[in-house]
């Protein structure tokens, strides 16, 4: 019986939610293709939690443990995955399309001289073969792809697929470690939190406009940004009023940004601002004026007093983030 290999990921030595999602998908595919699911867990201390992947559908969990593997090193990790592939001889290898997975999967694919479908947002078995959905042109078009190699490698977009418990028991085996060599050295790992996030690098931005009314009031914007691990952005008017520093200015004459989520509080969304953030994947507006142009243009908006809405939003997000 051929196998599906899932390369799972950890964060702070806990499984990422997307690991469960991907194992669940592997299960679903395995069931329709009549295959088994092997999940690979790489880390420094993973054995204890490895079995939990069974609940999401893994038949077998392979663990690769070593102090060298505590943090992601593409060279080490690639060697491990290749080793696992040798051992399991999978027909399908699933990665998660995180920064880590998207760094690792192509290396494995190239080493195995096979194609890779990355960042898949849909996955079906049609007539016994895989039909893969992958967004092109920033989601303006979706492609249905087919992958014709002996070993099919895919990475699945996190947050898209359902993580489904099905109460299986997985066998946990240790992978015999090959020699680990690397040409790169991790000098330092910085967790975000201490340093201020730059708007151009942030994946989420919370921007305050003139409606925030004072530098002190920006505290509520900062609080929301903190719980979202977001950067604080500002409109030109805000920067001109010296409520916020210039490096936070988003817009035509400020920084041009394209985060996944852009939350605008008390900003009307003038074209000069829009030109700097229209590339954002999802735009949320909080504005008291139901006629403000931004209400029409934002993907989601709340009409209301930002001094009520923003703190409520902060609380709500705290709740879901636990």
């Amino acid at each position: 019986m051929s196998a599906i290999l899932v390369v799972t990921e950890l964060q702070n030595n806990e499984f990422k939610k997307s690991s469960f999602e991907t194992v669940s998908q592997a299960r679903r595919l395995a069931d329709s293709l009549g295959q088994t699911v092997t999940a690979l867990v790489i880390g420094s201390d993973v054995k204890a939690k490895a079995a939990s992947l069974g609940e999401y559908g893994a038949d077998q969990v392979l663990t690769a443990e070593d102090t060298k593997l505590e943090n992601f090193n593409p060279d080490y990790y690639k060697t491990i995955v290749i080793e696992a592939v040798k051992k399991v001889s999978p027909e399908i290898v699933l990665f998660i399309a995180t920064l880590q997975g998207r760094d690792l999967a192509p290396r494995v694919a190239a080493a195995l001289e096979t194609g890779l479908a990355s960042d898949c947002t849909g996955l079906e078995v049609v007539d016994g073969s895989l039909e893969i959905e992958h967004p092109l042109y920033a989601g303006k078009v979706f492609a249905k792809l087919s992958l014709e190699s002996p070993v099919k490698i895919l990475s699945l977009r996190p947050g898209v697929f359902e993580a489904k418990m099905n109460g299986k028991q997985a066998v946990v085996n240790s992978l015999e470690l090959p020699a680990l060599e690397s040409r790169i050295k991790i000098k330092e790992i910085n967790k975000t939190g201490g340093d201020k996030l730059d708007v151009t690098e942030a994946d989420i931005i919370v921007t305050g406009g003139r409606g925030v009314r004072s530098a002190e009031n920006f505290k509520i914007i900062e609080e929301l940004a903190t719980v979202l691990n977001a950067a604080v952005g500002a409109t030109r008017a805000v920067v001109d009023s010296e409520w916020r520093p210039h490096d936070e200015q988003v817009g035509q004459t400020g920084k041009v940004v394209s985060p996944s989520l852009y939350i605008m509080c008390g900003a009307s969304g003038s074209i000069q601002h829009w030109a700097g953030m229209s590339g954002s994947k999802c735009i949320v507006a909080v504005n008291k004026d139901p006629e403000a142009p931004i209400i029409k243009r934002a993907d989601y908006s709340i009409v209301g007093d930002l001094f009520e809405v923003v703190p409520a939003l902060t609380q709500e997000i705290k709740k879901i983030k636990g």
Binding site: Q252, G254, I271, Q272, W274, A275, G276, S278
Partner: peptide
Amino acid sequence: QELNPAFKGLETNSNPWNM
């Protein structure tokens, strides 16, 4: 340097906001 986006916009989309 803030003219950069305007130039890009004029070049690719023939408007300074790059719409």
